[in-house]
């Protein structure tokens, strides 16, 4: 099994990034919902936003690399069993997932950098504020961040249910290809 993609299946690099992203996105969603309701004297009050932002920014760089990798290497061809409509739906869903993911990460970045502050990534490096803030930026970005996060989880569920449908009902290799079992 190669680390690179082939015409018929995903390489281990793509698979690791896919599942790592999946775990990260779901964890960050839960962490985000939890952290905003912490009380001031909770020992996690300051730590959770720091972790949320740090992991979020790392995921941003990983996702940029992921898209670059997708562009640089070959992508496995759609399975023969998939109908034309299924292939289009899959492509559209994947596009929406990437679009929502980037909107989510950018809106999060715009909340924390609204007053020109940089974001510290695990006390490892800083990502500075690039754009001069507009009035009410943190509130606008906050609303977008929340709405997009919910939307992303909905589309992720559709994506996951589709994979399960292919595995259980259609009994094809869709999910196995991403699990490295084909």
């Amino acid at each position: 099994m190669s680390w690179r993609n082939s015409n018929t299946t995903w390489g281990s690099l793509s698979r690791v990034i896919h599942w790592l992203s999946a775990i990260t996105i779901i964890s960050l969603f839960a962490l985000g919902l939890w952290m905003v309701d912490l009380t001031y004297y909770d020992s996690w009050y300051r730590r959770t936003p720091h972790i949320h932002k740090s992991i979020g920014l790392l995921l941003f760089f990983i996702t940029l690399f992921r898209l670059m990798w997708l562009w640089l290497t070959i992508k496995p061809a759609p399975l023969q069993e998939h109908t034309k409509i299924e292939q289009i739906l899959a492509k559209v869903t994947h596009g929406i997932l990437y679009l929502l993911l980037f909107s989510l990460m950018l809106s999060g970045y715009f909340i924390s950098t609204a007053d020109g502050r940089a974001i510290e990534v695990f006390n490892w490096f800083e990502v500075s504020a690039v754009f001069p803030g507009i009035e009410g930026q943190e509130d606008i970005a906050g609303k977008i961040h929340y709405t997009v996060a919910i939307s992303l989880i909905v589309v992720v569920s559709v994506h996951a249910l589709a994979a399960i449908k292919h595995h259980i009902i259609d009994k094809d290799n869709t999910l196995k290809r991403m699990l490295g079992l084909s």
């Binding site: 924390s112 609204a114 007053d115 502050r117 930026q137 943190e138």
Partner: peptide, 10 residues
């Protein structure tokens, strides 16, 4: 003087 805190206050 801290956008995240102001957002919280609002």
């Amino acid at each position: 003087n801290h956008a995240e805190r102001d957002k919280h206050l609002r």
